[in-house]
Design a protein around this nucleic acid. Structure first.
Length: 568
RNA sequence: UGACCUGUGGUGUAACUGGCAACACGUCUGACUCUGGAUCAGAAGAGUCCAGGUUCGAGCCCUGGCAGGUCAACCA
């Protein structure tokens, strides 16, 4: 690797991080034949979340950047927790994000045979032994981080006896918990993970791939480095909490092969986002206790949740680039994620008019029973998306928020006597406010200026505000699900002694059923993105029916008027 | 009171082998606008955890502190 090739490796526009720099160093030194091979290794025990997306983008991104490869490997060494359902969803999510592992799909369970042979080799070399003690005893003997451990009475068992016992473990002769296989390393090590770690335990459960073939299963530490080694991984990237495992990772690889090729473990900080939780355990809890409607609830930080919410793969990848990769444990502001979708959807989303909280407006001087079609721009950011026709008639709906009977100073929208524009349509003036017996505004009677058709008056008259609207007779009645953050606290699991569920936002979902959207949406299919003008980005949910579309709020448009209001 | 890791505007990331702390989000102005969106122009906001030291010069190097995180599942 010469210096002159560096600029090609570092794509312009894409930030470099400390891992890229380390890889470049390895390349320059010719390590591992100057190859780059990474892997994304999820355990199939839950759905992927935005934190995994960071790891996916990192690992596949590195392969792309350095002309290497990235494997998908399921770390399925614990049959008690893993299921095929999760395997399928993980593959779907990685693909949806836009990454391709090609023919390199692996499972740690592919290596159960080799791992078992390796364990036997270690026993033969006097580097592993069967321990008959129970979990609690072993744990106590391990000592504490500040106190050295005690050697097991079984530590110096003869090789033959260990071999015999391990075979009996393997053959199902023992029950769960009767004994374990341990690596013989160093009970005095200041690193807890080096104090004769357990490498095989007995689990009599059905494995999603190997069925009942095995009743002993390797531990993470005994499987991960070896799997990396056998796949030819050069850079094994994982999160910070595995930092202290690294010496053990290296120890096993050293036992496999003394010299030559070595995978290298590099750790980075996992993603934390404000106003959400990220641990699988907590997400599972939210699902099981029905605080949300499943793993793909649009309020969940899961990939499937974000997808259903209306996030795009591009926006998640851009977000991932923007947040960078370091070893600093921090919390990213969700507003950065929201910015990323807005940025993408602003450029790509079909505009449409939809009224979420309708207020009826009757245009008193518009011909009764008449209607017409007006031209509307599909996306002002992208002229190639063209125009569409929007039906207009005497009775329309506008947004309740767009009318105030007694407006404050800077309220530019509709109020008695005030003239505003209906987008792509006409100027209208509010003439009369019709109320019900309780004094609640029921409908507005307005006049329209026929000369202002299309949205401009020939006399050059200006109005301060443009409202979205939808023709009552032509509108598609819809359900709109308005989402807010799932938690009221910025850091829900950052409080000692307070359960994160205490901070759940009771108003994180508001279902609005009497919404009206222009007929254009009839042609759409689930996951299609729209901008409801002046409101935000929405996408069609799977729950939609032909009679009743259902939209999810992805994210609102920035709203400086609302912000102004909140100040007061 | 052990090992390992981390400390740069409100948040996240930069700063080549030491050379005036940069960028993005957010915040705040203003311009423009048939989305109070987008866009454009601009502003405020850190002297880099602390204390010493080396140096003409330190966020980068050295010493000593302080703070936070991880590790004591037969989880990954």
């Amino acid at each position: 690797m010469t210096d002159s090739s560096t600029p090609e490796i570092l794509e312009p526009g894409k930030k470099s991080n400390f891992i890229h720099l380390q890889i470049m160093e390895d390349l320059e030194q010719g390590k591992n034949g100057s190859r780059v091979h990474t892997r994304f290794p999820p355990e199939p025990n839950g759905y992927l979340h935005i934190g995994h997306a960071k790891s996916i983008c990192l690992n596949f991104g590195i392969a792309e950047k350095f002309g290497g490869m990235c494997n998908l490997r399921f770390d399925d060494t614990n049959p008690a927790k893993e299921e095929t359902e999760y395997v399928d969803s993980i593959m779907e999510d990685v693909r949806w994000l836009g990454f391709d592992w090609e023919d390199r799909l692996y499972y740690a369970s592919d290596y159960f045979g080799k791992l078992h042979e390796f364990a036997i080799r270690l026993i033969n070399e006097g580097k592993a032994y069967v321990d008959d003690q129970d979990a609690e005893t072993i744990s106590n003997q391990k000592g504490t981080p500040t106190r050295p451990g005690l050697e097991s009475p079984f530590r110096n068992r003869p090789v033959n006896e260990n071999l015999d016992l391990f075979m009996k473990m393997t053959n199902g002769h023992f029950g769960e918990g009767d004994c374990v296989l341990r690596a013989k390393i160093d009970m005095d090590s200041p690193n807890m993970h080096m104090r004769d770690p357990i490498i095989y335990r007995i689990i009599k459960a059905h494995h999603h791939r190997t069925g009942n073939k095995w009743c002993v299963y390797p531990m993470y530490d005994f499987a991960h480095g070896q799997s990396d080694f056998w796949e030819g991984i050069t850079h094994s990237i994982c999160t910070l909490e595995f930092e202290v495992h690294r010496p053990l990772y290296n120890w096993f690889v050293d036992q496999l092969q003394e010299t030559g090729y070595r995978p290298r473990q590099i750790e980075f900080a996992r993603l934390n986002l404000t106003y959400t939780v990220m641990s699988k355990r907590k997400l599972l809890e939210l699902v099981k206790d029905k605080h949300v409607n499943g793993w793909d609830d649009p309020r969940m930080p899961t990939i499937s949740g974000l997808r259903r919410r209306g996030y795009t793969p591009e926006s998640i990848r851009n977000f991932s680039d923007r947040i960078g990769v370091t070893k600093v444990d921090g919390v990213i502001d969700v507003s950065l994620l929201e910015y990323s979708v807005r940025e993408h959807l602003n450029k790509t989303a079909q505009r449409v008019m939809g009224v979420v909280q309708p207020l009826k407006v009757v245009l008193i001087n518009y011909p009764e029973g008449g209607d017409e079609e007006l031209d509307a721009i599909n996306n002002p950011e992208d002229p190639e998306m063209g125009t569409r026709k929007v039906p207009f008639s005497r009775e329309i709906y506008i947004e309740q928020d767009d009318f105030m009977e007694n407006p404050p100073k800077k309220f530019f929208r509709l109020s008695p006597g005030n003239e505003v524009r209906l987008r792509y349509a006409y100027f209208i003036t509010c003439k009369n406010v019709v109320k019900d017996e309780n004094g609640v505004v029921k409908e507005l009677h307005c006049s329209y200026d026929p000369a202002s058709k299309g949205g401009n008056s020939p006399d050059g008259r200006k109005v301060k505000s443009t409202l979205h609207w939808v023709s009552a007779r032509h509108a598609v009645k819809s359900e709109v699900r308005m989402y807010d953050r799932l938690f009221r606290d910025e850091n829900p699991d950052g409080h000692k002694d307070v359960d994160f569920k205490e901070f759940i936002n009771p108003e994180s979902l508001k279902v609005l059923t009497g919404c009206y959207v222009e007929p254009f949406v009839r042609t759409s299919k689930p996951l299609d993105h729209f901008q409801f003008e002046r409101l935000g980005y929405f996408n069609l949910d799977f729950d939609s029916t032909l009679e009743k579309p259902v939209f999810n709020l992805t994210v609102q448009l920035r709203d400086s008027w609302a912000k102004e209001q909140n100040k007061n």
